[in-house]
């Protein structure tokens, strides 16, 4: 009889069909991924590669680069070349100071948004379900206006002739306007204002998932309100806090508009410093190098945070 034969045929046909299906699935996966991968390659990886190449070249006289290999850009970050002796390098802390100041301001802004954003997120998460969407909508409302315009609006409020000083002088608290504009404090205010939603949203997301019966259990076990917050609510919402801090700290580090307008561009931050290199200073390699150093720092910090976060989960 032909039965074993038919079986073998059916088997082979089945295997062929399975292979065909797998090939199609593979092709479909890549077809679906292609637009995203293409976009990332064109606007993400390619410019990054260019930046990396530029950072190892020499600056052209009128901007741009000359195609000569050089590590000068990286040296310039830390050292100053002697005017008379090209080979003599002396330590120049000014760029390090700019980086340190930027990190400090971004850190302060992160802590500030956390202090303002956490209670806000807690407030929203504890509203009745129907009204939460309204509150979230209000939080995202500022995004409807361009950051530049919002920053100008802020400038109008805090300048010497602005609303705050008008009120303070009108009430008679101060005689002379308080100089807020063009200080680090103004930059700090501006950063908190513009990045607050980035803190509120992830913190809200983790607070919303928080099982409030845990809070009840802690109260039941003699924890006072402060200890419930410290021992139960904050540890349970740590992922949201970490995400919020990352979302605020990284753009805060590279902020450009806020320090430019509210800080008056007097004290450079990394973003302004990099922009300067591609503009007036006409030193593209140095701008590229500074951008890469910033990126390396951010990546290192993220890796550190993620490894710490992972350990904390692992150890409970």
């Amino acid at each position: 009889m032909s039965t074993p034969d038919t079986h073998a045929q059916a088997d082979a046909a089945l295997r062929a069909a399975i292979r065909q299906r797998e090939r199609e699935a593979f092709r479909n996966r890549w077809l679906l991924l292609a637009p995203g991968v293409g976009l990332i390659a064109c606007v993400g990886l390619l410019p990054l590669a260019l930046t990396m190449i530029y950072s190892f070249l020499e600056p052209g006289t009128y901007g741009g680069v000359t195609w000569t290999f050089s590590t000068g850009a990286y040296e310039q970050f830390l050292f100053e070349r002697d005017l008379f002796d090209e080979t003599l390098l002396t330590f120049n802390p000014s760029y390090v100071i700019i980086f340190a100041r930027s990190i400090f301001l971004a850190l302060v802004a992160t802590v500030g948004t956390l202090l303002v954003g956490y209670p806000t997120a807690y407030f929203i998460a504890t509203r009745p379900r129907e009204s939460r969407n309204l509150w979230l909508f209000l939080i995202t409302l500022p995004f409807w206006t361009n950051l530049l315009i919002r920053t100008y609006a802020m400038l109008l409020i805090i300048r010497d002739e602005g609303l705050i000083n008008a009120v303070l002088m009108g009430v008679g608290v101060v005689e002379q306007p308080v100089g807020i504009l063009y200080t680090d404090f103004a930059v700090f205010l501006g950063l908190i204002y513009s990045f607050l939603p980035f803190m509120v949203l992830p913190v809200y997301a983790s607070l919303e998932k928080l099982d409030f019966r845990l809070v009840e259990a802690a109260y039941d076990l003699y924890a006072t309100r402060w200890r419930v917050l410290r021992r139960v609510i904050i540890p349970a919402t740590r992922p949201g806090i970490v995400a919020g801090c990352i979302l605020v700290f990284i753009p805060g580090l590279g902020a450009y508009i806020t320090p430019e307008l509210l800080g008056g561009g007097k004290k450079l931050m990394i973003g302004n410093m990099i922009a300067l290199q591609f503009g007036t200073a006409r030193n593209w390699p140095f701008g590229s190098a500074a951008a890469l150093i910033l990126m390396a720092m951010v990546v290192l910090m993220l890796v550190f945070l993620m490894r710490r976060g992972g350990r904390q989960v692992g150890h409970g």
């Binding site: 009840e216 076990l221 349970a236 740590r238």
Partner: peptide, 28 residues
């Protein structure tokens, strides 16, 4: 609740997920 000498076993247990068994028991 934290001033009452009364403790509760919750329906869903409400154990603290970020603590070990011993830490949970020692919490009170």
């Amino acid at each position: 609740p934290f001033r009452r000498p009364v403790n509760t076993v919750f329906q869903n247990y409400a154990l603290f997920p970020h603590m070990t068994v011993a830490e949970n028991i020692g919490f009170g």
